[in-house]
Design a protein around this nucleic acid. Structure first.
Lengths: 311, 311
DNA sequence: ATCATTATATGTCTAGGACAATATGATTGT
DNA sequence: ACAATCATATTGTCCTAGACATATAATGAT
């Protein structure tokens, strides 16, 4: 039996902790303390990687590494409030449907989940489906992931299935004379695309023209795209999983890259605690999108008239 | 007017060149040579970032950095064979439809593109659509991107739109008694998901049960997922953009993580030049998938009978 | 109790060295 | 002239170890 061991880059890939962090932790805290291979390079055991992943998860919940490192896996596991979802969240939810859907995911019943979702969509219509089902469910899934009561792959499964249902619904919307042109994307390192799809649903329902460029578009490319596509608004989404501290700098950089007349909107759970930034609109909830769009239209109604005349 | 400047991490994000590479190039070749900010930290100009992106692109075409660095932007641009697509590739293509589609992308006519794709899908059926349209078009787009005749965001746009068309088609397939269970995903750092969707189309058409976990699943999670979902086969896709050298190590690592009875299949243009690896099936073309599946079924027909009896 | 200030914790940057893997070029044999 | 082998150059990634800015916690003052 071969004992699997991992190079520092593998660990970086699998844990999301940079090489710099892994080395400095080793220097400071003595953990992780990998053995060295024939070339003097670090070689991490599966156990260490597993422990690092646990630590990373707890850090996302607000714990600090200094307190976590040095604790055994058992102790770390006990910190995680595994049942925290059912306790507080169940009360907040008016509808049991969401719990049912979550359970389907946990049972890996992908076909059943898809069917249930499509049923909900048909029953509620896209707007209500997004606001009452997808959004709270996504939050719930996110929390479950933080808790460790949901595996990463289960979260991926959820994401993939939900993606399909929503995309189909968006595609079914009638096209027509849409305005304004909104470019939707996420920055590099932001994996989660559901927030973007939710935003797209809402915006498309409100009659905006959505140009979805998918995930992880490099900053400068966002600028290029906005220019080439003559977009009125660039909309970004940040999930809770995205490192908060990087966001302000990122947004300012992007603001500099974009033409001044292009509005920059950001949404997603990741920006909830963010301070205001000049010339950037923060839309923490889906409802804000609707009002923001209405306001934008009022402010730009002149141009619109002009545009229509030209047409 | 604020002159935008970029930190070393921004440049890493935007160019895909690691911090280590950026620093060692500066030491060795004297480029990029960023100015230093008040803290002595590197601060790159837009020009340098642009030049780095060009260099990166040329490197993907096989050029070596030592020869490229030191050349001015103008010289670099002249190296790029901008019209290479239309020259050689047009002849290879029996159908003009693909060129038409490519042109639609280049004109950013997303609505028209989507419509044209759906039309092709309806005309050819999913199998032929994937093999005759999507696959060659993807290759073409990839080459155009390497050439620089296509912006990154245009490639994203293509990817996003094509994604939607294919997903819809896959969802429309009837479910039923499917076998074997195949888990589809890509590893971290692999951005491209179209290859996976093409594979899923083919496999689903052949009656396999596809569990798509989307993009960028960490290695260990692939193992967890395979176990939890009782998958028979794990299928990965590598695009040409994925760093070739990392693939063998990655696959061996994954092979170690997976149970021996689970088959590991890999496909995509990224593995075309790869040497054989023990216990890992390489499927360079979409046709190989069909034969591989047939073979697998023959080899595992006993288990299947057993399974059906249990049911 | 609330706010301002200091101290600790933590991530990210820095420099420059080393080495393994890959690619190129030279030499030799057929 | 062409193919194969070996030497050399190129290039990415790892290494150590130090510094500092920023974020968080702890202290003290109002």
């Amino acid at each position: 039996m071969i004992v699997p061991s991992f190079s520092i880059s593998s660990v970086e890939r699998d844990t999301g902790l940079t090489k710099d962090v892994l080395r400095v932790w080793e220097r400071r805290y003595g953990f992780p303390f990998p053995i060295r291979d024939a070339n003097g390079e670090r070689s991490y055991s599966s156990d260490q990687v597993e422990r690092l992943r646990l630590i990373k998860r707890l850090m996302n919940q607000g714990h600090r590494p200094g307190k976590l490192i040095g604790l055994s896996i058992e102790v770390l596991m006990s910190i995680v409030p595994r049942s925290a979802i059912t306790k507080q969240d169940k009360n907040e939810l008016e509808s049991k449907d969401i719990i049912t859907l979550l359970d389907l995911i946990k049972q890996h019943a992908s076909a059943g989940y898809k069917q249930a979702m499509q049923q909900q969509l048909a029953r509620l219509g896209l707007q209500r489906f997004v606001q009452d089902i997808v959004a709270p469910l996504t939050v719930l899934i996110g929390r479950a992931w933080e808790n460790g009561s949901l595996d990463v792959f289960e979260e991926h499964l959820f994401s993939e299935m939900t993606n399909r249902v929503m995309r189909m619904a968006i595609d079914a919307l009638p096209d027509g004379n849409r305005w304004p042109r909104i470019l939707l994307t996420t920055v590099s390192d932001e994996q989660h695309s559901l927030g973007l799809l939710m935003a797209e649903s809402i915006l498309a329902l409100e009659g905006a023209e959505c140009i979805s460029l998918g995930n992880q578009l490099p900053l400068l490319e966002i600028g290029h795209a906005a220019c080439a596509q003559h977009t009125d608004i660039v909309a970004l989404s940040f999930s809770t999983a995205f490192p908060q501290r990087q966001i302000p700098g990122l947004l300012k950089e992007l603001r500099n890259v974009l033409k001044p007349e292009v509005s920059l909107w950001t949404g997603g759970c990741g920006i909830a605690k963010l301070a205001k930034i000049d010339e950037i609109l923060l839309l923490p909830s889906l409802d804000d999108i609707v009002t923001a769009l209405a306001e934008w239209r009022v402010q730009h109604s002149n141009n619109m008239v002009l545009k229509e005349v030209v047409d």
